[in-house]
Structures are given as structure tokens and as C-alpha cells.
């Protein structure tokens, strides 16, 4: 589903009922994706958590391999989700992305669930993620502000963050709470950007791809909020 095919049907210019239906479907799919991810994470942590965590944090370049694999699979899934040809392919893309994200989240969740002596860590991170996401979403919907001007800045900062993560893994130093805090702010920026695009720019009919965009931002936010909560717990 390329933009060109839908440029006259961007959400902001679509009929009121079409636009409302697009937004409803986007958030319905986002909710479904989050629930599916939570269920998959639970299943993976309880059944294969030790194996996946052992591999991911087993030293060497294992974590880099997992991250690289996630980015590659994520890329393919995103392309499927945006394909206009078949609805099945779009859903397959969303499904594969959710699965890949669940595998990536498993090591951190396993550590939080079994290796930290605090059962409140994951629920706290979940509630904080929902609160931040809800607050940012509400602010965009209430103010109707168009945050699409953030695109380039997000791309540059995202590139910077990727470089930092890569160099830290290759050169063997750990990124601390300040980096997590920066990533929470960055994820917040992505949420503002994608939400305002849902409201103003994304073409109606592209709800699967739009929900995938939002889901990726929510997962990023959760990941770094969880890291922050864990680091505060350790302190």
C-alpha cells in the first residue's frame, strides 16, 4: 500500500466516518498486537526463557546477532505490512513483527521476572508505558497538533542511538540509565510522530501498517522504561 496510491485519501482529508473507522481499526490492531506480544512473551519466558536469555547475554556477539536478526526480520515484516496487494500478507507482516519483538523482549523480561528480587518490576514498567503512551496519545488527539515536522530529527537521533548501541556492544561497555532515559524521550517522540501521522497523514485503509508503526514505538518505550525501572531497583 504505497502512499502514492492513497494520497487523496490521507486521514485528514477522508470523510469523517472513514477517518473515524481508520483510527478505530488502527488502535484495535495496536491493542491486539500488544496483547499478542504480552501472551507470546509470557509463553517464551516460561518455556524457553533460560535458553534465549543464555544465548542473548552469553557474551561475544550474540546480542548483536539477535539485534541484527530482529532488524532484518522487522524490515521484511514492515514491508509485508505495507504491501497493498493482499490483506493476508499485511497481517502476516504484523504477526511476524510481533513475534520478532517478543523474542527480543524475552531476555530482559526473563531477567526481570526470575533474576531480580522484585515482582513489581514488570507491572510497574507496563503501567508506566501505558501511562506515557496514553498521555502522549491524548495530547495529540486533544490538541490535534501535527508532529510530522519531527521526522528528520527522529531519523537522525535514531541513527545516533543505533550507532551508540552498536559501538557499546562491539567495544564492550555498558550503556546506563542516562541512555535509557534518552531512549524513553526518543520513543515518546516516535509516539507523537506516528500518532499525529495517524490523525493527519496516513492513508485510510493502511490501518495494519499504521498499527505496526505505533506498536514498534510502544515496544521501544516499554523496553527502556523496563531498563530504567530495573536500574532503579538495583540502586
Amino acid at each position: 500500500m504505497s502512499y502514492a496510491a492513497f494520497q487523496d485519501r490521507a486521514a485528514a482529508y477522508a470523510a469523517e466516518n472513514e477517518r473515524a473507522e481508520f483510527i478505530r481499526l488502527t488502535y484495535l490492531h495496536l491493542g491486539g498486537a500488544v496483547l499478542a506480544c504480552a501472551a507470546l512473551c509470557y509463553a517464551l519466558v516460561t518455556t524457553a526463557g533460560e535458553t534465549i536469555t543464555g544465548f542473548a547475554f552469553g557474551g561475544g556477539m550474540n546480542w548483536l546477532i539477535m539485534l541484527g536478526g530482529f532488524m532484518l526480520v522487522g524490515w521484511i515484516a514492515e514491508r509485508w505490512a505495507q504491501s497493498g496487494g493482499s490483506q493476508g500478507k499485511q497481517y502476516l507482516g504484523l504477526g511476524v513483527y510481533v513475534l520478532a519483538q517478543s523474542i527480543l523482549l524475552t531476555p530482559l523480561l526473563y531477567v526481570a521476572a526470575y533474576l531480580l528480587d522484585d515482582p513489581a518490576v514488570i507491572p510497574t514498567a507496563g503501567v508506566l508505558t501505558l501511562t506515557v503512551f496514553g498521555g502522549l496519545t491524548a495530547s495529540v488527539f486533544i490538541t490535534k497538533k501535527d508532529f510530522s515536522f519531527m521526522g528528520r530529527a527522529l531519523m537522525l537521533l535514531g541513527f545516533g542511538a543505533m550507532g551508540l548501541i552498536l559501538v557499546s556492544i562491539v567495544f564492550g561497555f555498558s550503556l546506563g540509565a542516562l541512555f535509557s532515559a534518552a531512549m524513553v524521550v526518543l520513543a515518546g517522540g516516535y509516539i507523537l510522530y506516528y500518532t499525529s501521522n495517524v490523525l493527519h497523514h496516513y492513508p485510510v485503509g493502511a490501518h495494519v501498517a499504521a498499527s505496526l508503526a505505533l506498536f514498534s514505538a510502544v515496544a521501544l518505550l516499554f523496553w527502556y522504561i523496563l531498563q530504567l525501572v530495573m536500574s532503579f531497583g538495583r540502586d
Binding site: S2, Y3, R79, M155, A206, L212
Partner: peptide, 27 residues
């Protein structure tokens, strides 16, 4: 991490209103 618009849905350059002074300050 994802690049912006990995989903290929964004409107083309120039089709958005230019950022206001407030937008630039926020950014």
C-alpha cells in the same frame, strides 16, 4: 530502532505545512 517512515506511508516532502517557530523551538 527504526528509521522514520520505515512503513512507506509518509506523505512526500513539501506536502506538509512548514514548521512554525513554536515547532522549531519544541524540536
Amino acid at each position: 530502532m527504526q528509521p522514520v517512515d520505515p512503513f512507506g506511508l509518509d506523505p512526500p516532502e513539501g506536502s506538509r505545512p512548514p514548521p512554525s517557530r513554536g515547532d522549531k523551538g519544541f524540536l
